[in-house]
């Protein structure tokens, strides 16, 4: 009896040779315990050393091995051969990103969008200095002391802080493909996460990006981003909470014109 095998169809693209990507088929020994990442490793070691893909932690923490498996954005380390066996597994790079080589995509636009939402705590001193028009109370950073946060205050944003920047949500989002300028699910969810943080004073600085036409207003709540998220961040909820907030601020800006100038 011959050993059990499983077939993988992998979208290949070599920028030095290929005009466009094409599927390559590999047949490898079937091992029930193997993840898709193990299978790719086998192919690279034994069959085709030119196969290119990103990976690091192998435990769904680093967010490196996002790829499209049988049409669904997934982490390679969390996808197992046994989930598909005996059917062929179709592997493609993340959608809505330029393909660099094989399963590796160019994520630079994602990094720019992530930076744009200022994904870090902006403390009171930084917030005051960013807006000289407001009264600056002379304060040294050390005089602020430590930031206390209760479990309840942390619970407010914890879900949105679980993001591992794996970009599966960007691959899942059709609005991303229709409007590449869209800031996108993860970056907006992370911006929301800092806005909800009791230690943060940077909401005003993030508003321009979050409330922009290419911010939350490019979303139509398809909701697939939240379905594929490996960490249950629910970026669709984060985005649409910001629409509700934006609508409220929009209305308030007529009652209190100062608010509109933020």
């Amino acid at each position: 009896m011959s050993e059990k095998t499983i077939k993988l169809e992998i979208l290949r693209y070599n920028p030095e040779v290929d005009q466009e990507p094409n599927f390559g088929t590999f047949e490898i020994p079937y091992n029930e315990a193997w993840s898709l990442l193990d299978a790719l490793e086998y192919i690279k070691d034994e069959l085709d050393s030119s196969l290119t893909y990103r990976w690091s932690c192998r435990m769904a923490v680093c967010g490196s091995c996002g790829m499209v498996v049988n049409g669904r954005p997934q982490l390679g380390c969390e996808t197992f051969l046994r989930d598909s066996y005996p059917n062929t597994i179709r592997v493609e790079p993340l959608a809505n990103f330029p393909i660099e080589k094989d399963l590796v995509v160019d994520a630079s636009t994602f990094i720019e969008k992530l930076e744009a939402v200022k994904p870090y705590i902006i403390d009171a001193v930084d917030a005051m200095e960013a807006e000289p028009a407001r009264k600056i109370i002379p304060t040294t950073k050390t005089s602020l002391g430590t930031f206390k946060q209760t479990p309840k205050e942390m619970g407010l944003f914890k879900q949105f802080s679980m993001c591992i920047n794996c970009m599966l949500c960007y691959s899942a989002c059709p609005q991303m493909g229709l409007n590449p300028m869209f800031t996108g699910p993860a970056a907006l969810a992370i911006g929301h996460r800092y806005n909800l943080d009791s230690r943060d004073h940077g909401t005003d600085q993030r508003t321009e990006v979050i409330q922009d036409k290419n911010g939350v207003w490019s979303c139509t709540f398809v909701g697939y981003c939240s379905e594929v998220c490996p960490k249950n961040v629910d970026p669709a909820a984060a985005i649409n909470q910001n629409k509700a907030q934006g609508a409220q601020d929009w209305a308030l800006s007529f009652l209190m014109p100062r608010k509109g100038e933020k």
Binding site: Y13, P15, P98, I99, E100, D106, P174
Partner: peptide, 10 residues
């Protein structure tokens, strides 16, 4: 090595 990223159309 030269970069030539491939953009898939929607």
């Amino acid at each position: 090595m030269s970069r030539r990223p491939y953009i898939r159309p929607m």
